[in-house]
Amino acid sequence: MSEKLVDTLVNMKEQEALEIAKELIESGEDPLEILGSCSKAMEVVGKRFETGEYFLPQLVMAGEMLRQVSEMLKPKLKGAVQSERLGKVVIGTVKGDLHDIGKDIVVFMLDVNGFDVMDLGIDVPPDKFVDVIKEFQPEVVGLSGFLTLAFDSMKETVDAIRGANLRDKVKIMIGGGQIDDEIRRYTEADAYGLNAMDAVTLSRGWIGGS
């Protein structure tokens, strides 16, 4: 674990963090150790977001730094064992809605917190969710939507999952700009989240993991 790398990542010092990561790689440090430092840093960033110390810009910057470090590590990671994942989550923005900023941040936070995430993108029809659930067999499905029209699309998606006899195989969480408990009841999802950390907490609760 490199305290310096953790510290610079947590404090949004992008250039310094990338230089430290580069030095560590060049000095022959175990790439999985470097990734471990990144995970530790992301955990702190997530906590700070939860407590209201950090906001979206910090999450976006953390994601960007992690992406760059991962790129640097890629050649070294060939053949390395993929770390064990806690469980599988399928996520997408529902039919008719083209918004992805919030969804992308949820995907990022789930990924750095150890979940195997399949991102279906935007404007995803109910049938697509059903097909992917059959194939990928996730424990959790996340439906994202920003517009009010997403309420009906979410409901249709939950109905389609039920219609395919898959409803008891997955927990369904919804999230997005206007989502609250009333919408959760309307869509018959299991839970809703107000932000990316809520998605992590919900998934942990359903799947397990610390």
Binding site: L56, P57, I101
Partner: peptide
């Protein structure tokens, strides 16, 4: 863009 402007806050 939202992401670009957020990164610019730091860069």
């Amino acid at each position: 863009g939202t992401k670009g402007a957020m990164l610019d806050m730091f860069r």
